[in-house]
């Protein structure tokens, strides 16, 4: 068990685990400290400069980088902290394509949350120079788009791809004001080593990396991905009986919220008009719809005519381990042969 420690934030006593950052400790205890480049899954970088605090009367430090220590007194507001926050947020807003109504992030946007928490002066914003021309949006990936005009350069995507996905498809390129997120050689996403897993997309705090044709679901259904044996837990977002989104289940031990491209984006087949929804049995050269009872009876009958080495089973990587176990059991015990294999070995 990790050690529990006590500290105060703005005079409020809180308890957290040793090793937690001051920022995480605050957020876990429902105390909001402005932040943008922080993500609980990633190592802190202290780049957005918004999460400043003062500890035990010392100078401003970034709370994402400060380990929570027993007995410390954290203050989240001071004239210096306020100055830095207001400057940073105003600079970000001035430099942002504020197209909130058409933005996939609008209901869950960290920049909007920030501006609500930091008192921003509209007269100053008006004087600051805005975006003069919009950079082109990268729509090359079939599942998500990247809009540099909404990117706040938090590098969460870069770090996600590196630390979580291990692909390193993204990096900061150029310098100064021209700095952008890009792939190797600044090619479109689709021409890069990106695996389209979408891990970066779900972590992007704003609408810069956003799923295409996004629609907020009416309800969510907890389920298991059918694509492979890992059995990632996911929530399918549904409107009526139509699936419109998928997101990883962070509580599921097999995937801790992560998904691959298929689990995250490959759900369209479910509502596809060409999808089979009942078994078909070929009679007189034509497929005819049948019930499951009819179909299974037919298979069982045919199998019983081919026991022994005239039978072979080829199992699927889409099955779980348990299902694959059952296939080999059936093959050996019921069909009487060892000729069983798996598509992943082909």
């Amino acid at each position: 068990m990790t050690e529990e420690i006590n500290l105060t934030i703005d005079g409020i006593p809180i308890t957290t685990r040793a090793g937690t950052s001051v920022l995480d400790a605050a957020l876990e205890n429902a105390i909001y400290i402005p932040h943008l480049c922080h993500h609980p899954d990633l190592k802190p970088v202290g780049a957005c400069r918004l999460c400043g605090v003062e500890i035990d009367g010392g100078r401003m430090t970034m709370s994402c980088l400060e380990p929570a220590r027993a007995g410390i007194e954290v203050v989240t507001e001071s004239p210096e902290i306020a100055l830095v926050r207001r400057t940073a947020v105003e600079l970000l807003i001035a430099n942002h394509d504020m197209d909130c109504l058409a933005c996939a992030a609008a209901t869950d946007c960290e920049l909007l949350r920030l501006s609500a928490h930091v008192s921003v002066q509209s007269e100053r914003l008006e004087r600051l120079k805005g975006l003069t021309e919009l950079k082109p949006v990268d729509n090359s990936n079939p599942f998500f788009s990247f809009d540099p005009n909404k990117c706040v350069l938090c590098t969460i995507c870069v770090r996600t791809c590196e630390e979580i996905q291990g692909v390193r498809a993204l990096a900061l390129i150029n310098r100064g004001y021209e700095t952008v997120i890009g792939t190797f050689g600044n090619k479109p996403f689709i021409e890069s080593v990106c695996e389209s897993c979408g891990e970066c997309v779900v972590r992007c705090p704003v609408g810069a990396l956003a799923p295409k044709r996004f629609q907020k679901p009416a309800r969510e259904v907890q389920t298991t991905c059918t694509y492979c044996g890992v059995g990632c837990g996911l929530y399918l977002g549904v409107i009526g009986d139509r699936i419109v989104s998928a997101r990883g289940d962070r509580e599921r031990p097999s995937n801790h919220g992560q998904l691959c491209v298929k689990g995250r984006y490959g759900f369209k087949f479910i509502n596809h008009p060409g999808r089979l929804t009942t078994p078909l049995i070929k009679r007189n050269g034509e497929f005819e719809e049948a019930t499951w009872e009819e179909a299974l009876d037919l298979v069982a009958e045919k199998f019983s005519q081919h026991k022994g080495d005239s039978f072979a089973a080829l199992a699927s990587a889409k099955c779980t381990n348990e299902e694959n176990y059952l296939i080999q059991k059936l093959t050996r015990a019921a069909m009487g042969t060892n000729t069983v294999d798996h598509c992943a070995r082909l």
Binding site: L36, G46, C48, R49, V152, L153, G176
Partner: peptide, 18 residues
């Protein structure tokens, strides 16, 4: 300074530009 900023942190990247 604006051209040589590494672009990492908000105040420097955007502040020098403003």
């Amino acid at each position: 300074a604006e051209k040589e900023s590494c672009g990492k942190c908000v105040p420097c990247r955007l502040g020098t530009k403003q």
